[in-house]
Amino acid sequence: VFVDDHLLEKVLELNAKGEKRLIKTWSRRSTIVPEMVGHTIAVYNGKQHVPVYITENMVGHKLGEFAP
């Protein structure tokens, strides 16, 4: 499973602090992992960042699938 390192670091850091804030990313190719559930990730679609709230059903899919 591929997840960009910088994105995973941000998610794990927020989980350690117990925070839930918006994470901006250009990494549409990253796979959604269970650690991301409950976070809102702003995924770049080529024009703007689209906020995507991550749920359990999204695990295993790519971030780009949810930012048309």
Rank of each mutant, 00 (worst) to 15 (best):
V1T: 10
F2V: 06
F2T: 05
V3E: 05
V3C: 08
D4Y: 02
D4N: 06
D4L: 02
D4Q: 03
D4V: 01
D5A: 15
D5F: 15
H6E: 15
H6L: 15
H6I: 15
H6S: 12
L7V: 03
L7P: 01
L7A: 01
L8C: 05
L8T: 02
E9P: 01
E9N: 15
E9I: 12
K10M: 15
K10F: 09
K10S: 14
K10A: 15
V11P: 00
V11R: 00
V11S: 01
L12S: 06
E13A: 12
L14Q: 09
A16W: 06
A16C: 11
A16S: 11
A16V: 07
K17I: 12
G18I: 02
G18C: 09
G18L: 05
G18H: 07
E19F: 06
E19D: 08
E19I: 14
K20Q: 06
K20W: 06
K20T: 07
R21H: 12
R21V: 13
L22H: 05
L22C: 13
L22F: 05
L22D: 05
L22T: 12
I23K: 02
I23G: 01
I23R: 01
K24G: 02
T25M: 01
W26D: 06
W26S: 08
S27I: 07
S27Q: 04
R29F: 14
R29V: 12
R29Q: 11
S30F: 03
T31N: 12
T31H: 15
T31E: 08
T31A: 12
I32E: 00
V33C: 10
P34V: 14
P34T: 12
P34K: 14
E35Q: 13
E35P: 14
M36W: 01
M36H: 02
M36D: 00
M36S: 01
V37Q: 09
G38F: 10
G38T: 08
G38P: 00
G38L: 08
G38A: 10
G38M: 08
G38Q: 08
G38R: 07
H39N: 02
T40H: 08
T40S: 09
I41S: 00
I41G: 00
A42H: 05
A42N: 04
A42T: 03
V43I: 11
V43A: 03
V43T: 07
Y44R: 03
N45C: 09
N45W: 10
N45Q: 08
N45A: 09
G46A: 10
G46I: 05
G46Q: 08
G46D: 05
K47V: 12
K47M: 10
Q48N: 12
H49E: 04
H49I: 03
H49C: 06
H49A: 04
V50Q: 11
V50T: 10
P51R: 13
P51Q: 09
P51S: 10
V52G: 01
V52C: 12
V52W: 03
V52Y: 04
Y53S: 11
I54V: 11
I54Q: 00
I54F: 01
T55R: 13
T55F: 11
E56D: 12
E56A: 14
E56K: 10
N57G: 11
N57H: 10
N57Q: 12
M58W: 04
M58N: 07
M58K: 12
G60T: 11
H61T: 09
K62W: 07
K62F: 09
K62L: 12
K62T: 12
L63S: 01
G64V: 06
G64E: 09
G64M: 10
E65H: 13
F66Y: 12
F66I: 06
F66E: 05
F66V: 06
P68H: 08
P68Q: 08
